[in-house]
Structure formats: C-alpha cells, structure tokens
Simulated scan of single mutants.
Amino acid sequence: MFKLSRIHHISIICSDYAVSKHFYTVILSLEIVREVYREARQSYKLDLMVGDQYQIELFSFPHPPARPSKPEALGLRHLAFEVDDVAATVKYLEQQGVVVEPIRIDEFTGKQFTFFTDPDGLPLELVEK
C-alpha cells in the first residue's frame, strides 16, 4: 500500500511566456526558483515557489493547443491560492488591472473566496485563510 504525502508541483502551459512570467512573478509575487530554456523543445520552464510548500512549473511551447478552461469544464477546475485577506488581495489585483469576480462567502466554511484568471484564462481562486 502506498500513501500520497503532498502535492509536489502544478504545471501550467502558457501562450505568451513573457506575459505569464510577469503575471505570476510580478503581479502574484511568486518567487522564482529556477528558469531554464530547453532548446530541443523550444520551451521555457520557470519553477515558482508558492509560500514554502508548493511549486508551480510555468511552461512555454510553440503553438500549444487550446483547452477549455471554464470552471465547469471536465478536468482540473481551478487552482486556488490561500490568502490572509481576500478583500485586500482583490484590491491589489484590481489595481494591477486584473478583473476579479465579486467576493462570495462559502456556505460551508463561512470564509471569503473569489475567482480571477491568468493571462490565458486559467481560472484561479483566492480563499481566505
């Protein structure tokens, strides 16, 4: 019998590497762990640290196929980030030009949450700590 111990990383393929790198590192303030260009694949790979637990791998590939990303599409629904203050984070994101949905209250936890998207329309969520 095996036991999964934690999520190791999450991989995201972007359409415009420079735009997505700016979004994740400047707007979302994720720390760069490592950035490499893989010549054979014509692909950048940017490893990003989220807090001190999880890592996001941001990839670029020439001409990646589109994927449905509406929250109710089959497959991975969204990526959620925990924050101390949802309202303050929303205010900051809106000042950066990011469109954020109205803040809602989770009916089961009573905590605030909301959604926004990355430059490629990937649904991202903010969840109150």
Rank of each mutant, 00 (worst) to 15 (best):
Y37T: 06
H78A: 05
V98P: 01
F81T: 03
R67C: 03
D47A: 09
Q53P: 01
D16E: 15
D106W: 05
G110Y: 12
Q96C: 14
E35A: 10
V36N: 00
D85S: 06
D47V: 03
R6Y: 14
D52V: 02
K70Q: 11
D85T: 10
H78R: 08
S60C: 05
H78L: 05
V50C: 12
A18P: 04
A87M: 08
V36P: 01
S69G: 10
E107R: 13
L28R: 07
Q112K: 15
Q96D: 06
M49T: 15
F113P: 12
S11F: 06
S15P: 03
P62A: 02
I103G: 09
F81E: 02
E82I: 05
I13S: 09
H78S: 04
L4I: 15
R104T: 11
A73R: 02
V99R: 05
Y17A: 01
H78E: 07
G110N: 14
D47S: 09
L76M: 13
V99C: 06
Q112G: 03
R77K: 13
G51R: 08
L76H: 04
Y44S: 01
S60N: 11
P102A: 02
D106M: 03
Y37E: 07
S43W: 07
E39V: 10
F59S: 00
D85A: 10
G110R: 11
D85I: 09
Y37Q: 01
D16R: 15
E72F: 10
K21R: 15
S5M: 14
